[in-house]
Write a protein that binds this DNA or RNA. Structure first.
Lengths: 177, 177
DNA sequence: ACCTGAACACCGTTCAAGT
DNA sequence: ACCTGAACACCGTTCAAGT
């Protein structure tokens, strides 16, 4: 199975590069992380990364996707807790990705890949919030506006440093009525 | 008045640089605008900018401040219209600055100047929204949470492209009850 | 197919040298 | 005081050349 061996090697190398990029992106931020540093940690030449990924943006989108899948699958197993606790959990989880929220917004109109990823992400989260709002008994006509307010608030809570008490008060207010 | 002449020249040159930077920052974005292009339009050598401004971030903060003062002073004269119209006006005004909202959030932790500016800006807008919410009769205990939700929503409306109807529905929902 | 050294066309910023 | 040319230490990315 030479074919499979090759494929496995390729995936492994890809994962090494992504893992190096992931830690750097999360700790230092996207702009502050150079391809050279990623390559250094992954143990390859800087231009080798371009064999596995089209460019820096595609590398970011790949990391965002695996990150999203990981968190989302554990979210599903959280249906026992109440709405506010679930939303707070989401915010807490995404604290790590906080740096990248701003990066994504900033690169929307520079990278088509990121634009598409962002659209998909919003639809996903909006569906999730809509379901939560329906379940908590918000009347039909107000749901769409409330969904938008909710997602903007979640983004705000990610972008700005607030205390746990403030976060809790805001989430309660969000799902009141 | 050689002294005054000098001062005037200095301010004029500063304004020329800021005006060049302003148009480029708003149209192309902060990162996409190089100091060379700014210098080119302002008619100076790239490094001359550093005689007038400490660095690119300080240049941005200066532009943000004059922009803020301009818009804010006309906002004061808007007290006749109702709350929703006033907020929609704010969002419409800041559409131009949209690009820079993301930039500011992205550079918060890279530049102390921008960090301080952002804090001041938030306090200003929060005071404004708090006043609006008090006037529309929101009960004491819920005001602080509602203020945060309102400011996050305004930021969200700036960062994301929505239709006028959606914007209106969201603002009405924000100031309901 | 996979990886690299060298190069390209940029950055923001500094500094010695000019006026 | 004001302005500049030249240089510095970077970027992300490309490409011809190797295995």
């Amino acid at each position: 199975m030479a074919r499979n061996k090759r494929l496995q090697d390729r995936e492994e190398k890809q994962k090494e590069i992504m893992s190096a990029a992931r830690t750097l992106f999360l700790n230092e931020g996207y702009d502050a992380t150079s391809m050279s540093r990623i390559a250094n940690i992954a143990g390859v030449a800087p231009n080798t990364i371009y064999w596995y990924f089209k460019d820096k943006d595609e590398l970011l989108v790949n990391i965002l996707n695996t990150e999203l899948i990981d968190r989302f699958s554990t979210y599903i197993e959280l249906q026992t807790k109440n709405i506010i606790e679930r939303i707070l959990w989401v915010i807490d989880q995404f604290k790590l990705v906080k740096q990248l929220v701003t990066t994504v917004h900033g690169r929307l109109h520079l990278s088509p890949e990121i634009y598409i990823w962002h659209e998909r992400f919003h639809i996903l989260v909006e569906n999730l919030l809509r379901q939560e709002l329906i379940q908590s008994g918000v009347e039909e006509g107000r749901i769409e506006a409330k969904v938008k307010i909710a997602i903007f608030t979640v983004e705000g809570l990610l972008a700005h440093e607030l205390t746990d008490d403030e976060k809790h008060a805001i989430c309660s207010e969000l799902f009141k009525l």
